[in-house]
Amino acid sequence: MRIATILCLLLAFLPGTAAAQIARTEWREVFSPDGTIQRVKLTRTPADAPAPRSVIAAADVVPIEVNGPSESRFDLVFVGDGYTSGQFTTYGQHVRSKFAEIMAIEPFRSHRTQFNVWQVNVASPQSGVDNDPYGVNRNTAMDMGFYCGGIQRLLCVNETKAQQYAAQAPDVDQVLALGNSTTYGGAGGRVATASGGNAQSGQVAIHELGHSIGGLADEYEGGNRYTGGEPREPNVSIYSRETMRQYRLKWHAWLGQATPDGGVIDTYEGGYYYRYGVYRPSQNSIMRTLGRQFNLPGREAMIAAFYRETGLIDAASGASTTLWVRPVSSRVTTTWTVDGHYAGQGNALHVPSLRLAKGTHTVTATVTDNTPWVRDPALKRGSLTDTRTWSIGG
């Protein structure tokens, strides 16, 4: 669970704090039906108030897909607002639909087994969300509503409550709040929101996971000229194509390559909320417009981030006759060495078949994902490689 989420929950539960009285100013992403994205500044008054503990404890957690222990998986937690207790079947259908939409796009599709998905059933007194239609307010568990900040499609939620309910799941890496509505809408932020009953709104979650998992920057434009230093995000840069190639910077390894979102990887001016002075890798990825694919540098960053969260090995053990590892994914390759010499591949090693000389020997299992979607040598050595070592004999 992220530190910011933990601090938020602690503050919410402390009596006598000003958590519910202090307004906050924050940036939110607004998503249009045509896929375009803009960033707006909102002042929330009052700030989000917490839910009572007794209400939170009543929320049920339903496992949607569990592929392994939470400590070695990326846990997506769905919370729903505006669903009455009699509408949990509908809510479950919405959760599965959004999860299917996420997993239909790469690199999620190829790395599905690295995710766990949880559905938290939160009963609302009334069905629906505020301002759907405009001017109609409803009594719901997490205060979701359209026209947030006066913007029609901006669907806001009480993030404090959403995170409290999500914390009922075994672990939380990303919270996705679904509103009981068929109207297109959503929002980015600490909690991504989307209309549960709208077929397009799952794209909001995919874009937001680009931020929260891959650390990707937005590639759409906003202000005039960027004058700052080199951004830390892997998919925006102040460097031209020639400089990248010469000094092997950012996405230099992908320059000229055809990219899943169309065209080739290059340095296209505009992104990071600026029109000039900063470059993005492709013309139109999902970090710029919904409904698109991740570009190659974005896909690379996402895969590396998956493995940083999950590792490559779920478990490993050794007996007198057999050593074994259990990888997190069938996409990886396990190579065995004995005293630094190749001894085979596969997830198990039969020790007697090695016919080792007497004495102590070092056996190492190296688990690697050799995907062509990652070219950065540092990521290959770090995030995409893991080892286990045993000392046998004696």
Rank of each mutant, 00 (worst) to 15 (best):
H252C: 04
Q293N: 13
N295M: 02
H94T: 06
S124M: 08
G150R: 09
N139Q: 11
N139R: 11
S383K: 07
V77T: 07
T364D: 03
N158E: 09
V264K: 08
P52N: 12
T113G: 01
Q126P: 02
P46F: 12
P125N: 10
T36F: 01
V332S: 14
G150Q: 04
S282E: 13
L76C: 02
V236G: 02
D339L: 03
Q168V: 12
R53I: 13
S320L: 12
G393N: 05
Q38A: 14
V79S: 06
V66L: 11
C148D: 14
L379F: 09
A205T: 11
R375V: 04
T45R: 12
Q114L: 15
R248K: 15
I392C: 06
D34T: 05
Q119M: 14
E159D: 14
V66R: 00
H252R: 12
T36M: 05
M244F: 04
N224K: 12
Y276N: 14
V55P: 03
A199H: 13
T182K: 05
H252N: 14
D314T: 15
P170A: 04
A365F: 01
G222H: 03
L323F: 10
R73M: 06
Q257M: 13
D314V: 14
D369E: 14
R53G: 10
L356Q: 03
R2I: 09
E230A: 06
V172H: 01
G311Q: 04
V191P: 04
I22G: 00
D60K: 15
N198A: 07
M1N: 08
H94P: 00
V122K: 05
A217L: 00
L155M: 11
Y239D: 12
A199W: 08
E26F: 15
R28H: 13
T183C: 00
A169Q: 00
L356P: 04
Y147F: 15
G263P: 02
S127F: 05
G150A: 06
